[in-house]
């Protein structure tokens, strides 16, 4: 009982803390002229460096999806459905979610460690001491960069994932290229693509924001920073899954 009580208290405590940080971050975002340079530098770091791993993960997931649906294929439905299945899973789930999960490890962990180190070495205090706002200076550019970078990365992942699904189907399944493309076209509507990209932006904000929140709460030297990095990944992953579930319901409601 006591443990549950403590857990609830801790959750509420972090929810309140995150809400306050989110409020200040949103306020800071209203003034893009003040942070766009920092944001672009961050975006370049997060985005360009992530492309190779995003491409590899997307290619594998696209290929696996077409294989899996191929094996389960019994012949009672037309074979072009495989094109639809691959497109639907990549656009709405695999593209955004797997790309985001890759970025949790790459970007969320790094932000947590970076800000955590700045906290324990008093660099954040020093920023405040010179009259700068750490949220404006550190959090806003990173969260803005996350929002900016994830949609194009997901677009790349979508393209590569569907392409790999097509290639996998061509090589191993009894389906022609035009059947696959027909399936793709039948499923494909702009809405699914846009929905996936909006989801990507939400994921981008989530990953960077959680990295910042956890990092700014670091304490206790190198060990503390290590814990922070782990927390950023765990909390980031859980939050992504949560958003994914919520957004899937929204897709149902509007789609």
């Amino acid at each position: 009982m006591a443990a549950i009580g403590a857990g609830v208290t801790l959750t509420l405590y972090h929810a309140a803390g995150a809400a306050v940080l989110a409020f200040h971050t949103l306020r800071g975002m209203l003034r893009p002229r003040r942070y766009y340079q920092l944001m672009l530098a961050q975006a370049f770091d997060m985005g360009v460096a992530s492309i190779p791993v995003v491409v590899v993960v997307a290619a594998l997931s696209g290929a696996v999806t077409s294989q899996q649906s191929g094996y389960q294929f019994t012949g009672t439905v037309p074979i072009w459905i495989i094109g639809s299945i691959v497109t639907a899973s990549v656009l709405t789930e695999l593209g955004p979610l797997l790309t985001a999960l890759v970025l949790v490890g790459r970007v969320g962990a790094r932000i947590g460690a970076e800000l955590g180190t700045m906290v324990v070495t008093e660099q954040v205090d020093a920023l405040r001491a010179v009259g700068r706002d750490p949220i404006e200076q550190l959090v806003v550019p990173r969260v803005a960069a996350g929002i900016l970078v994830l949609p194009p990365l997901v677009a790349i992942a979508d393209f590569v994932g569907i392409g790999a699904g097509w290639l996998g189907a061509m090589l191993t399944l009894p389906i022609t290229s035009s059947e696959f493309i027909y399936g793709t076209r039948t499923y494909f509507h702009d809405f699914a693509l846009w929905f996936g990209l909006i989801k990507a932006a939400v994921f981008g904000a989530t990953i960077t924001f959680i990295g910042c929140y956890v990092g700014l709460r670091a304490s206790g030297g190198a060990e503390g920073v290590g814990r922070t990095t782990t927390n950023a990944v765990v909390a980031g992953t859980v939050a992504l899954m949560f958003w994914d579930a919520v957004l899937a319901r929204l897709l149902k409601a509007f789609g």
Partner: peptide, 11 residues
């Protein structure tokens, strides 16, 4: 102006 004990330079 504040000179921090551990310098606290931005690395």
């Amino acid at each position: 102006g504040y000179v921090f004990q551990g310098s606290a330079l931005f690395d």
